[in-house]
């Protein structure tokens, strides 16, 4: 069976006065039915632009210059405009980081939910209102009847994010793309939203593409992880594998520089330097200027994503920077 979603050789460029920024430089991955996949990276890694490209939301000066989005085995490029709009409107859904700017401040929550239901599902006024109540209830919004009459500013950040998830779920999508859904929220509210996403996956059989910079959020929520750096995938594999034995030096660095709340660290091990300017990406592997194990080859030849030890890695010296055992024992483990 073909995967639910496939992205092949995606390239997105932004034409700016300072030159062409190659935000996404050939990204290929898939998501199976019912799977929860994390796309992880730092600012400028291209993770959000990848999501926008899937949804057809890349804004000027951005252009999808190459690649293919394949939905349920069919390239979107082969489908008619109406068909593509229907897929992106109903079968795919996206929630963004900032629930305040994604909602219209002038309209009530009720109007914003029922609008989607009436437009995409052609529900009548009464049916739409009924379904809106069910949706708010589904995502755990308290006193939903009252919320329908409220405007976004009357709700807390957590409630607004729940409302956005309700709107995203209105057409019963197969895949929910969540772009940093909890980054703007407090940690106790983040825990509520992550629990909601897990619960919705189970109850609705929803597939999830979670875009985040927070490795902690990934660990409890996703089956597979895709690590992105400078517009390319550095590593892809099951969350268990990648967290336990990261193969790419960037993944290793990311995990080492992330402090853990359950462990006392002697000192954080930072990744020196900063990510490259993607209007003039370095030759070879984009990570080589910051990589502790880079060799002459890394400066010349860009590594391709290759299957290795149960996952895929784009590195000429995979596992060379790992030494995971050494760092694990140097941390004083404190169980809770």
């Amino acid at each position: 069976m073909s995967p639910l979603l496939e992205v092949r050789d995606l390239e997105v460029h932004f034409l700016t006065p300072g030159g062409t920024v190659q935000a996404v430089r050939g990204v290929t991955f898939h998501i199976d039915q019912g799977e929860s996949v994390a796309l992880v990276g730092e600012s400028g890694s291209g993770k959000s632009v990848t999501a926008q490209a899937i949804m057809g939301l890349v804004e000027l000066p951005g252009h999808v210059v190459a690649g293919e989005v394949i939905w349920k085995g069919r390239p979107l490029s082969a489908a008619g405009r109406g068909e593509v709009a229907r897929i992106r409107g109903r079968e795919l859904a996206i929630v963004f980081q900032d629930p305040m700017t994604s909602l219209n401040p002038l309209l009530t929550i009720g109007v914003q939910i029922t609008e989607v239901l009436r437009r995409h599902l052609r529900l009548g006024r009464r049916q739409a209102a009924q379904r809106a109540l069910e949706l708010l209830d589904l995502v755990g919004v308290s006193s939903p009847r009252q919320r329908l009459r409220q405007r976004p500013h009357e709700l807390s950040g957590g409630m607004r994010q729940r409302v956005l998830i309700a709107i995203a779920l209105a057409c019963e999508p197969d895949l929910l793309i969540a772009d940093e859904p909890t980054t703007a929220l407090d940690v106790t509210i983040q825990a509520q939203i992550l629990e909601l996403l897990r619960d919705l996956r189970e109850r609705l059989g929803l597939s999830l593409l979670l875009i985040t910079h927070d490795l902690g959020v990934v660990a409890g929520t996703c089956d597979r992880i895709l690590v992105m750096y400078a517009g390319r995938l550095a590593e892809a594999g099951t969350a268990d594998e990648v967290f336990a034995r990261p193969a790419h030096p960037y993944t290793v660095g990311l995990l080492r520089s992330t402090p853990r709340v359950d462990v006392v660290h002697p000192r954080l091990i930072a990744i020196e330097g900063s990510p490259p300017d993607l209007s003039a990406p370095p030759p070879g592997c984009a990570f080589h200027p910051r990589c502790p194990v880079a060799t002459a080859r890394c400066r010349r030849e860009p590594p391709v994503l290759t299957p290795l030890g149960g996952r895929e890695v784009a590195c000429w010296n995979a596992f060379a920077a790992s030494g995971v055992e050494a760092t694990a024992t140097s941390h004083e483990e404190v169980g809770r």
Partner: peptide, 27 residues
């Protein structure tokens, strides 16, 4: 206690075994 248990830990195995106190309600 609730705050500490809500902080996600970048380790799937640890994360699965933890007991979480998910606080209801708002600040």
């Amino acid at each position: 206690r609730a705050l500490l248990s809500a902080v996600p830990i970048p380790d799937p195995a640890t994360q699965r075994e933890r007991r979480r106190v998910v606080l209801r309600g708002e600040i």
